[in-house]
Structures are given as structure tokens and as C-alpha cells.
């Protein structure tokens, strides 16, 4: 009987997890201006407001610029670090990796405030660029965690074999290592992208006069009039993330099929 009660609990837990998400479209299509039951009627007005909102468009564009840059930078830095930590032994490795992975266990407010203090001290103006610097710092440890798994599953004799067959170190990296860790690189890029796109407090501290999507959302949540539109925005974000995840999963499976590796589970 233990099995069925556990299953029941699992079901309730899923309800708890999904309740906030499921409520998004409910209110996004509700014509009432107040977010409350009972529902009034069906409307697409909030989506119309959403797509007509230029400030939001700008914030989204900024966020995408930041997220794409962060994704590229942190995955690149992650590839270096993951390669170094899985392939080479060197004195002080634990300490070096500890420093690089530190943002993982540092409250975001500490990262935000320390970066802010230093950027102001060196006189660097706050802009999208400074947000990219901060987000890259935060996303790199996650990228490394994902890439470490990809790199450590590489058989070292594969690269030795390529080297032995006449390739240089660089062409070995290009022809053998890179294709084999590509699924890891894609996951790492996606993860960094998502972390950056969703990050609020560091962006809030370092963006200066610029606006990102989370900063815009945070600013609008104070105005009850804007909430239905935010519900529509949330609905779009949920749909977008599901599409993104499904695509990622598709590529991961294809990568597995190509190399015949065993399926060891999802992205996290």
C-alpha cells in the first residue's frame, strides 16, 4: 500500500509544482482586469497589449543580447576550465577550481554588490556590458558542471589515437574532442542562456539605466493594471521554454544516437 500512497503524494506534489504555471494562461485569457475568481470572459486583449508594448520589446531585446553573449562567453570559459580540470593534473587545481566554482555557493546579492562596488570604483559606466560580465561570472560554474560531465566521459585514448595517427593537438581537438562534447556544449549554452535571461538581482544592480526583461517585469508588478499583461507575458515565456527544452532534448537524443552512448537521463 506504500506504493499507492507515494504515488498519490507524487501527484499532489506535481499539482503544487504546476499550480502557479497553470494559472498563468487562466488569467492571461480572462477579460477581468483584477486577478481573481470568478473569471469574467475570454479575451486576447492582454496579448495585444503585450505585443504592442515597446518598452517591453526593448527590454526583451536587451535581455536577448545579454543572454546570448553570456551563453557564448560562459560556455567558452567553461570549455577551457572543464578541459583543464578533466585532462590535466597541476598543483593547486583544487583551489583554482574552487575559486572558479565559488559563484555557485555565493548568494547572488554578494556577487551583485561586490561587482557593483568594484565597477563604480574603477569608474566603468553601468550598461548591458556590465550585466554580461556579471552573468558570465554566475553562469560559468553551471557551464563547467555540465561540460565536466561531457569531457570526463571522453576516453583519453581517443585523442591519443588521433594524435598517433598524425593529427596535431589542435586538429585532434577539432576533429575528435569537439564533435564528441557537442551535446554538452549545447546543454551548457542553453543553461547559461536560461540563467542569464531569468536573472534579476545582478542585472538590477549592474544595468544602470538599461532595462532587461526581469527588471521590466519587476517594475510592472507594482501596478495592478499591468498584471493581466504580465500573465500573458508569462504564458508566452512558458510556451517558449517548453519549445526550447523539447528542441534541446531532441538534439541530445540525436547526439546519443550518433555516438551510440547510453542514455543517462535529462539535461540536469
Amino acid at each position: 500500500m506504500k506504493f499507492s500512497s507515494l504515488k498519490g503524494y507524487a501527484f499532489l506534489y506535481l499539482v503544487f509544482l504546476y499550480a502557479p504555471i497553470v494559472l498563468l494562461p487562466v488569467f492571461a485569457f480572462n477579460s477581468g482586469t483584477i486577478i481573481a475568481f470568478p473569471l469574467k470572459g475570454f479575451t486576447l486583449d492582454w496579448f495585444r497589449d503585450l505585443f504592442a508594448n515597446q518598452t517591453l520589446g526593448l527590454a526583451l531585446k536587451n535581455s536577448l543580447i545579454i543572454a546570448v553573449s553570456t551563453s557564448i562567453l560562459s560556455t567558452t570559459l567553461g570549455v577551457f576550465a572543464a578541459r583543464a580540470s578533466t585532462r590535466f593534473k597541476f598543483p593547486g587545481k583544487t583551489g583554482v577550481m574552487g575559486l572558479i566554482m565559488l559563484p555557485l555557493v555565493l548568494p547572488e546579492i554578494i556577487i551583485a554588490s561586490s561587482l557593483l562596488v568594484v565597477l563604480l570604483a574603477v569608474g566603468m559606466p553601468l550598461s548591458l556590458f556590465t550585466v554580461i560580465l556579471g552573468h558570465t561570472l554566475m553562469a560559468t560554474p553551471y557551464a563547467i558542471a555540465v561540460l565536466n560531465a561531457a569531457f570526463s566521459s571522453l576516453d583519453r585514448s581517443l585523442e591519443e589515437a588521433a594524435y598517433d595517427l598524425g593529427e596535431t593537438k589542435w586538429s585532434t581537438f577539432r576533429l575528435i574532442i569537439l564533435p564528441l562534447v557537442t551535446p554538452g556544449i549545447i546543454s551548457s549554452a542553453l543553461m547559461s542562456f536560461t540563467i542569464s535571461l531569468d536573472e534579476f538581482i545582478v542585472a538590477f544592480s549592474l544595468a544602470g539605466k538599461e532595462t532587461t526583461l526581469p527588471i521590466y517585469i519587476f517594475s510592472q508588478l507594482r501596478f495592478p493594471k499591468q498584471i493581466p499583461m504580465i500573465m500573458a507575458l508569462g504564458t508566452c515565456l512558458v510556451v517558449a521554454s517548453i519549445v526550447l527544452l523539447a528542441t534541446a532534448e531532441y538534439f541530445r537524443r540525436r547526439g546519443l544516437a550518433k555516438t551510440g552512448a547510453k542514455d543517462t537521463g535529462g539535461f540536469l
Partner: peptide
């Protein structure tokens, strides 16, 4: 002389067949 310049080739214990 680096490994890629030596007149030797190797068969590895794990075979090191490139899976892709």
C-alpha cells in the same frame, strides 16, 4: 619527435574507435 611524427602506430587497449 612528437607522437604524430613518429613512424609508429598504436592499437589501444580500449581500441579508441572514434564513435562519431
Amino acid at each position: 619527435v612528437a607522437p604524430n611524427k613518429r613512424p609508429t602506430n598504436m592499437v589501444f587497449q580500449s581500441y579508441a574507435i572514434f564513435p562519431h
